[in-house]
Simulated scan of single mutants.
Amino acid sequence: MDLARFLLPENSSLLDAMKAIDGNTQEVVFAHDAQGRVSGLITDGDIRRGLIRGLGLDAPVQEVMTRDFHKVAPGTGRALVLDLMRAIQIRHVPVIGADGSLCGIHFLRDLLGVQERSNVAVIMAGGKGVRLRPITRNLPKPLVQVAGRPIIERLVLHLVSHGIRKIYLSINYLGSMIQDHFQNGNRFGCSIEYLVEERELGTGGALALLPERPAHPLLVLNGDLLTQADIGRLLDFHQDQQVKATLAVTGYRHVVPYGVADVKNGRLERLVEKPSLDFQVNSGIYVLDPSLIDMIEPGVDYPMTRLIDACLEKSLGVGVFPLEDEWRDIGSFNELFAARTGE
């Protein structure tokens, strides 16, 4: 992005600002002082309102610019930026460096302008989070916060940023708190409905509660995940593989904290100091052909792994998609601490 097209000196005129906005086609421009520090934000609406109140085109932009504007620091995640834009209904947020300079600009139409997907997502958010008690004694685990934001909110915003507009939340334990937080989803850029479990239905049983069979492959996620998984690539992979189910996996390394003896016939063959074992583990993210919903027994605890096993038994194709992005399962105090501290 050519940021010079979005900058002009703070002593510029309204006409100068109009020309800059016309040139960058993004309806906004930023004023800067003599040291290059951004001092104000000017939109086409600001200029229009200034002209209505009698300012001339030669008036300085300081007469109309917003000095106390919303901004973010470099490295701020796009989910957080999207939430800010949605919450205060703005279309552009500048990225301002420590020296006050313009480092970039987030545009709402870019964040939401990814390919809109017809796929429906279901987030399983009904568990009790027993391993996180006492935190979860009066709070559902998906609403536990990491860096000031509930885990499940981050997940919803991530899905929205990848073009998912229809989301079901499966709820049970303290589910009304999740409903109160999200309501109909409008504030988060999507439509949210709820699958209310009268009893715990496991990681897959709530799919039998869907009011209708989706027309496109269904995305299913556990509600205690922190991930930057490329949802678009995952859905495209599922389609390209022409399989009935796709399981997203992530790398996991287990380091044995001791020296391991390799023994044969009572003799030491070798001693391996703290060896490691590498695995591809289930990430709790799936894509399912809608027809698989018919295989789920209604009203019973039905784990997703049982559905995957049933696919294998029936020789239905199951794809494996390796995640290359950040992924954390917030299922224990150690994982929660690591997520909160960035370790």
Rank of each mutant, 00 (worst) to 15 (best):
F182H: 04
L195Y: 00
S176N: 10
H181E: 08
I171G: 07
I151C: 07
C190K: 01
H158V: 07
I192D: 02
P150N: 00
E153K: 12
L159V: 08
Y168Q: 14
R149D: 13
L195A: 01
I171D: 04
F182Q: 04
I178Q: 06
S161A: 15
S176M: 09
I151H: 04
Y194F: 12
Q183M: 13
Y194G: 09
Q179N: 08
E193T: 10
H181Y: 13
Y194V: 11
G175S: 06
M177L: 14
N186T: 15
L159K: 02
C190N: 03
D180G: 11
V160K: 06
S161K: 12
I164G: 08
N186P: 10
L155I: 08
H158Q: 09
Q179I: 10
R149F: 12
V156D: 06
R154W: 03
I167N: 05
L157D: 14
L195C: 00
M177W: 08
F182N: 06
L159D: 03
E197I: 03
V196E: 11
L169S: 02
I164N: 08
Y194T: 11
P150V: 01
R165Q: 10
F182Y: 06
M177V: 07
P150W: 00
F188Q: 11
S191V: 14
V160G: 09
V160L: 12
L195G: 00
L195E: 00
M177A: 10
S176A: 12
I152P: 09
N186S: 15
M177E: 10
I167K: 08
F188N: 09
D180I: 09
Y194A: 10
H162P: 15
S176H: 11
G175Y: 01
R149Q: 15
F182T: 06
I152R: 05
I178V: 13
E193G: 08
G175C: 04
D180W: 06
Y168C: 15
H181Q: 07
V156H: 02
R187Q: 11
H181C: 04
Y173Q: 12
L157P: 11
K166A: 12
F188E: 13
I152G: 10
P150C: 01
N186R: 14
R149C: 15
G163Q: 02
E153C: 09
N172S: 12
S161H: 13
L159N: 03
N172M: 11
I152Q: 08
E193M: 04
N184P: 05
V196G: 11
H162W: 14
F182P: 05
E197F: 02
R154Q: 10
Q183C: 13
H181N: 05
P150I: 01
L169Q: 01
K166H: 15
C190D: 05
Y173I: 13
L169V: 03
S176V: 12
Y168I: 15
I151T: 07
V196A: 13
G185P: 06
H181V: 04
I192T: 09
Y173H: 14
H158G: 05
I151M: 05
R187I: 09
K166V: 13
I152H: 08
L169R: 00
E153N: 10
G189H: 01
